[in-house]
Structures are given as structure tokens and as C-alpha cells.
């Protein structure tokens, strides 16, 4: 078996709301290995967002241990986790979160700006390469407000790729897109997966699970299903099957 990127050991996360303790995660354990494309599904209230925050090192568990690339995260302080996120994780958000009035290439450079190992020239080169990988090499100097939703999400994916992360964490990455563009983005994710990237796709949409090679389903803070997907759908095929647009 290949190397485990993520190892969760009996993760619990409680929140104090007033006098009540809310158990968002009630003991979750699983591992995700290098090169997997995993979907984490669950309806609202299932603990999905909490899981995402933990996996993204934005939050630490109340109990249990989380290893990201064999590094124990639970005991890290804020600054250490910031650096860890910067080096190991690429985030893709539902609402893109690009900087306003800023060019694509500058948006993509952003994570590298918080890494002193890169010079300005190296940053620019890596950003251009990442944008090339998501098929936006002709949009390098377009500003974020001059792009369509699909293009913005591609820029966001390029930004997630630019620091060569061990893990890409996508949060409802197609949630704001129309069907066609959503498929286009899924095609991109499948391509990245094919190139060996480890991707976790958090969604509430069961349809999207068909495109990933492993499905984890959460309910009430527990994993209720964790299975390999034997019939991976090709997003490319689905896209081609869509009726041609009239414009």
C-alpha cells in the first residue's frame, strides 16, 4: 500500500454553545493514501465542515490525533499550522475567494508569497506553470473581475497547485457553477488525479461522488460508509454527452 497522507485516529471535536456541548465529530478514524481521490459527503449537520476544517489544519480536534504527511497536527500552535498549510495543503473554495481586482497570475502567486524560500522570479514561473496546468495560459493577466465563474475556479485550483501540496482540499468546489462548468471543473480534478494528486472533495451532492474513487459518508459526526467506488464515471464523457450550447 502507498504512503498515508492523512491518518485520523479517533477524532472527536466538541463545541461549546452556551451551556450545551455539541459533538460535531464523535470519534472518526480513517486514512487517505497518496494518489486517492476521495469524496467526503454528508448532509448539513453531519460534521462535514468540521471535518474539512480539521483536515485543512484550520482547527484542531478536542480528542484524537491527526497526522498529515506523518506530522502530528493536534499539538501544533497557530503559526506552525499556518506554515504547514502553506507547504502541504491546497485549498479550493466554493466561492473561489480570489483577491479582487488582481490578475490571475498574482492570485496564484499568493501562497508562495508566504514562503520565504521563493524569489519573485520563481514565484512568477511557478504561477505561470500552475495556470498552464489548469488551461488558463492565455488568461495570465486578466483580473479576477474580468473572468467567468469557471475561469475563476480554475485560477483558484491553480492557486491550490502552486505550492506542490501533498493534498488538495476542495470544499463544494463546483457549488457555485452551472452544470456544464461544474463538469469542466470535475474533468480538471480527474485529470489532476490521473497525474497522481491526492484530492479530497467535500460535498453534499451525492452525484459528484460518482467521479471519485472512494466515498466517505458522514452522518451525525460518524463515518457511516467508507467504500471504494468501482464504477468511476468519467466527467469528460458526461460533459460530451451534454447538449451543445447555442452560443
Amino acid at each position: 500500500m502507498s504512503k498515508a497522507i492523512i491518518r485520523l485516529e479517533n477524532i472527536k471535536r466538541n463545541f461549546q454553545v452556551g451551556d450545551e456541548t455539541v459533538h460535531a465529530l464523535r470519534g472518526v478514524s480513517f486514512s487517505i493514501y497518496e494518489g486517492e481521490f476521495v469524496s467526503i459527503m454528508g448532509s448539513s449537520g453531519s460534521g462535514k465542515s468540521t471535518m474539512l476544517n480539521l483536515l485543512g489544519c484550520l482547527d484542531t480536534p478536542t480528542e484524537g490525533e491527526y497526522y498529515l504527511d506523518n506530522v502530528a497536527v493536534s499539538s501544533m500552535n497557530k503559526n506552525e499550522r499556518s506554515t504547514l498549510r502553506n507547504r502541504k495543503i491546497g485549498f479550493v473554495f466554493q466561492s473561489y475567494n480570489l483577491l479582487a481586482k488582481t490578475t490571475a497570475v498574482e492570485n496564484v502567486e499568493l501562497p508562495l508569497q508566504y514562503n520565504p524560500d521563493y524569489t519573485g522570479k520563481e514565484r512568477r514561473e511557478k504561477a505561470i506553470k500552475a495556470l498552464d496546468a489548469v488551461g488558463l495560459s492565455d488568461r495570465l493577466y486578466h483580473k479576477s473581475n474580468q473572468m467567468s465563474g469557471g475561469q475563476m475556479q480554475r485560477v483558484a485550483i491553480a492557486r491550490a497547485l502552486v505550492n506542490d501540496p501533498v493534498l488538495i482540499l476542495a470544499d463544494e468546489a463546483t457549488g457555485n457553477l452551472d452544470t456544464r462548468t461544474a463538469y469542466e471543473i470535475m474533468v480538471l480534478f480527474q485529470e489532476l488525479h490521473a497525474k497522481g494528486r491526492t484530492i479530497i472533495f467535500v460535498t453534499h451532492n451525492p452525484e459528484l461522488a460518482a467521479f471519485t474513487n472512494r466515498n466517505i459518508v458522514l452522518r451525525d459526526g460518524k463515518v457511516i460508509k467508507d467504500s471504494a467506488n468501482d464504477h468511476i464515471e468519467s466527467a469528460k464523457k458526461m460533459l460530451d454527452a451534454l447538449p451543445k450550447q447555442e452560443d
Binding site: 503559526n79 499556518s82 506554515t83 498549510r85 502553506n86 473554495f93 475567494n97 508566504y114 492557486r159 505550492n163
Partner: peptide, 16 residues
């Protein structure tokens, strides 16, 4: 606020 959140999520520290 969102920009700050984004910057933090991609590795900005408090002092940045």
C-alpha cells in the same frame, strides 16, 4: 474579512 481568511488559510501568519 474574507480576504484575511483566505490569506490565513493559505499560510499567512497573524503577524503577516
Amino acid at each position: 474579512t474574507r480576504e484575511i481568511g483566505l490569506r490565513m488559510s493559505i499560510g499567512a501568519k497573524g503577524r503577516d
